[in-house]
């Protein structure tokens, strides 16, 4: 009997498995890949469970799904404060030590850590889907601001302000790029993509232009540049249209809907 390799996270599963034990992706459904090579992220089924470290995560709901975790006593997860939906009273919370000051929604940006043992649940506030991104040891994933729902303690977190990109409607006011890095041991990162999430793997020096509001994540190996569409001016004042130029090699994830969150330095 051959092991089944999950096409999303590339890890092995038992021959009779119907969902990936590492990322929860259904193993009994065909991948949905458009002619151009964009692959839909695996849709986690309602009430589906998978494990990371010693903890268990269960997905609830379909339109604005909830991630509910039963934390092992040695495990911790961290998350943006406002994504917390409920928790057991005895689950301890502590502030995550951020690399710099940052504001969101006009309020101080706050990331909390929850430790086991106990249950805690998270959700964001827009329709979309949860995407599990296992972070392999010594790899980095860059994520759009306010898209990460939670990360396991094995993943380090930092962020960087990038200028000139937010989305087409909100102009070049810039946004934060959240960076997740696993040192030595693998970790788990869960994102909430607004609408549908699609991923494409760019070859070396392969380029694609992405509307900045739809950008969701990328491998650290993918360069992201601000790019003004040549010869194109719009509006009364003849403003330029800026898009994100993604240059491979590596994975790029996009979301079909944007949900703008105001972020400030």
């Amino acid at each position: 009997m051959e092991l089944i390799v999950c096409s999303w996270c590339r890890l092995n599963n038992a021959p009779d498995a119907i969902q990936c034990a590492t990322c929860g992706a259904p193993l009994d459904a065909d991948d949905k890949v458009s002619d151009s090579g964009w692959r839909e992220a695996p849709r986690l089924r309602d009430m589906e469970k998978f494990s990371f470290s010693g903890s268990t995560l269960q997905v609830e709901g379909k339109y604005v799904p909830v991630a509910e975790i039963e934390l092992h006593q040695n495990d911790r997860v961290y998350f943006e404060q406002h994504t917390m939906l409920w928790k057991d009273p005895h689950v301890p919370l502590s502030q995550y030590n951020l690399p710099a000051r940052r504001r969101a929604h006009g309020m101080p940006y706050s990331v909390l850590t929850a430790g086991g043992a106990g249950r805690i649940a998270f959700s964001r506030d827009a329709p979309g889907e949860l995407v599990v991104m296992p972070i392999h040891a010594d790899t980095e994933l860059d994520v759009r601001e306010h898209a990460f729902l939670l990360a396991s303690h094995a993943v380090d977190y930092t962020f960087q302000r990038i200028k000139g990109l937010a989305n087409l409607l909100h102009g070049g006011s810039g946004m934060y790029l959240d960076r997740f890095f696993a040192r030595g041991e693998p970790g788990m990162l869960m994102l909430h993509g607004n609408g549908d999430v699609l991923q494409r793997t760019l070859g070396s020096d392969e380029r694609i232009l992405v509307e900045p509001g739809r950008f969701l994540y990328k491998d650290a190996s993918v360069a992201m540049n601000t790019f003004a569409i040549p010869g194109l001016k719009v509006g009364l004042l003849g403003g330029k249209i800026w898009v994100a130029e993604m240059v491979g090699p590596g994975r790029v994830g996009i979301q079909s809907m944007y949900h703008h969150t105001s972020s400030e330095d």
Binding site: K32, S34, D35, S36, W38, E40, Y63, P127, G128, E129, N194, G195, D196, L198, S256, M257
Partner: peptide
């Protein structure tokens, strides 16, 4: 030319 639809929550129309 053609269009392919991707996604079912907020679907994308992908023109070739």
């Amino acid at each position: 030319s053609s269009v392919q639809i991707a996604g079912d929550y907020v679907p994308i129309a992908e023109f070739t």
